[in-house]
Nucleic acid binder design. Structure first.
Length: 561
RNA sequence: UGGGGCGUGGCCAAGCGGUUAAGGCACUGGGUUUUGAUCCCAGCAUUCCCAGGUUCGAAUCCUGGCGCCCCAGCCA
């Protein structure tokens, strides 16, 4: 049989598509699209949409998924975002092949469709001001009233619309509105704007246009032009579906995709909104869109989260219309699960404590062979040098250890991983009373980590030979927010007040085993007993690499205390 | 007393009139272990927002409540 055919959990969208296929709807085609606006970087919520849209296409024979940039607002969009988004989608493992589209490529067609609407008496040029339009629109409980321009003649509408396009009017002077129903209980149907004047430079069409179509008008038509069968979007567009359908019903387009809405992703202890992430970036709260603490795709990549882990996560959380907050531990579990099986184990000491092994010969050192993965011999092994002076983790020593502490303490014996048993004999402190060095003895009979007399030790700790150590900087990250729901409307404080001031800790004096000197940017490792780390792509220098802690190991000890 | 949605364990989620109400995360206990990791095994909803009703039988159908989310951009 073929390799692991993954059993996919059913969800309401998969069920709808399965039914459609059963009825041979759309001639059996399945064609989706991922339609980002290039106004920021993609985040974990977009990953859900990407996995859904591209995933559904992949699940069906002949299924296709387009990448389409929904760029109808020149003031917010930029080529930088287009490039970043393409990279992110590719990195996640998806391929749009030759189907890269831009709504801005449809501007002329969109304009022609607007003219068709006007000629059919279904759209008119509005001269009311923004404020007046708001007034005329009514409220949630009161119907709106007709604008005086609602009955403008078709000829006049055509003339005005052409002049809007030619640049005759200033921004805001006119808009083109669909003529639907000012009394509709659905606000979106109260004659929504479909074109506005914006004398702005567009990152793709330049100054060719000074009027730009609105989302509702653009999106459905773009879907239809591309032959999309299922147009998946988030719940806030549910109220827009009647409008989506209305445009396609009015226009001579022989394709009417089905819009299906699902709930957007919320994760505890973070924010998943492009607007808020943008605010963190521009406000200098983080180090750019790819800050490893950000749940942007670029940030997660830099942090060391893998595409496979993110895809797995998106499958595990499911797709529904429920308003939910996924526990961050689900994502973290996916990351650990993937890294556990793919990553080499090495030793590194984050907060070094010097240990002198008094009975070890002064000028001796030996090379110990240590496997890269205890459960996967195929990963091979590397040489780890051992010598008289080593570093151990400061946290692995306690002067007055509690009863269940298995590590180093006065008079205690522990195993140095893959090396020897050592016993702590003496503690050396500085003038502040801080422990700065340990004097230990080793048992030469325990080489490799086993005592011939059958004696057991409870603790095994990691270490690095001082003279062979590679100096490194390690960046340890924690959650970006202290509150599980920083942007909850239950709070009366601004969401940024919940930023965790300790979300990054820079350890400038880490000591790593020498095999790591060959590590390249992006390489990932497990530092035994600590967690998973990768070589930071931006700040590493030759001879002084920077490592990001992707995620710590699960730690039932710290939980117990 | 506008409209549109949603409500299954701590967090997700399958379930589509007959199942002991899947599964994952979290948590708890036990086993293996030279990472207090991984792995393994076990436990974790007499009940599906509430109340009525239909039915031999309801998380699934009906009625009525309650709670939460979204909508009054010339943003998407």
């Amino acid at each position: 049989m073929s390799n692991e055919e993954k059993i996919l959990s059913s969800n309401f969208i998969r069920n709808i598509i399965a039914d459609d296929l059963k009825q041979n709807k759309n001639e059996g085609r399945v064609h989706t699209r991922f339609p980002p606006e290039p106004n920021g970087y993609l985040h974990i919520g977009h990953a859900k949409s990407i996995c859904l849209n591209f995933g559904i296409a992949e699940e069906h024979e002949g299924g296709l998924c387009n990448l389409r940039f929904d760029d109808s607002n020149p003031e917010k969009e930029d080529l930088e975002y287009v490039e970043a988004i393409k990279e992110d989608v590719r990195w996640l493992g998806f391929d749009w092949q030759d189907r890269l589209f831009f709504a801005s490529d449809y501007y002329l067609q969109l304009y022609d469709y607007a003219v068709i609407l006007i000629r059919a008496g279904k759209a008119y040029v509005e001269s009311l001001s923004l404020e007046e339009i708001r007034e005329y629109r009514g409220t949630l409980t009161q119907p709106g009233k007709a604008s005086p321009d609602r009955d403008r003649s078709i000829e006049e509408n055509i003339d005005l619309f052409e002049r809007m396009r030619s640049g005759e009017f200033e921004d805001g002077k006119y808009i083109l509105r669909a003529k639907i129903d000012m009394a509709s209980p659905n606000m979106n149907l109260r004659d929504p704007a479909i074109y506005r004047i914006k004398k702005a430079h567009h990152y793709r069409t330049g100054d060719e246009w000074c009027i730009y179509p609105m989302y509702d008008f653009t999106h459905g038509i773009s879907d239809a032009l591309e032959g999309i069968t299922h147009s998946l979007c988030t719940l806030e567009f549910e109220d827009h579906r009647p409008l989506y359908d209305w445009f396609l019903e009015q226009l001579p387009i022989p394709c009417h995709p089905q819009q299906i809405e699902f709930s957007r992703l919320n994760l505890s202890y973070t924010v998943t909104s492009k607007r808020k992430l943008n605010e963190l970036v521009t406000g200098g709260y983080v180090d750019g869109w790819d800050d490893p603490r950000m749940l942007t795709i670029a940030g997660m990549r830099r942090r060391g989260y893998t595409a496979a882990a993110i895809r797995d996560f998106c499958e595990r959380i499911g797709v529904t219309k429920n308003d939910t907050i996924i526990d961050m531990s689900v994502l973290e579990n996916c990351v650990r699960e993937d890294l556990d099986k793919t990553t080499r184990r090495v030793m590194g000491v984050l907060k070094p404590l010097r240990v002198v092994i008094e009975n070890y010969p002064d000028d001796q050192s030996e090379e110990l062979d240590a496997p890269y993965h205890p459960n996967d011999p195929d990963m091979g092994s590397r040489i780890v040098p051992f010598s008289k002076v080593i570093y151990v983790e400061h946290d692995d020593f306690m002067e007055e250890p509690p009863r269940k502490f298995f590590r180093l303490g006065p008079g205690r014996e522990v195993r140095l991983r893959y090396a020897y048993f050592i016993t702590c004999n003496e503690i050396i402190k500085d003038e502040h009373g801080d422990v700065v060095e340990l004097r230990c003895t080793y048992d030469p009979e325990t080489k490799g980590g086993n005592a011939p007399d059958g004696r057991k030790v409870r603790g095994t700790i990691h270490w690095v030979s001082a003279e062979h150590a590679l100096d490194a900087e390690v960046r340890v990250y924690d959650r970006l927010f202290n509150d599980p729901e920083p942007d909850s409307n239950q709070h009366d404080r601004d969401w940024k007040e919940f930023l965790n001031p300790e979300s990054i800790e820079i350890l400038d004096n880490a000591k790593l085993e020498p095999s790591l000197s060959k590590a390249k940017a992006g390489d990932q490792f497990q530092f035994e007993r600590l967690g998973y780390f990768n070589v930071e792509s931006k700040n590493s220098k030759a001879g002084k690499p920077v490592f990001n802690r992707t995620i710590p190991l699960r730690d039932s000890w710290s939980k117990k205390r």
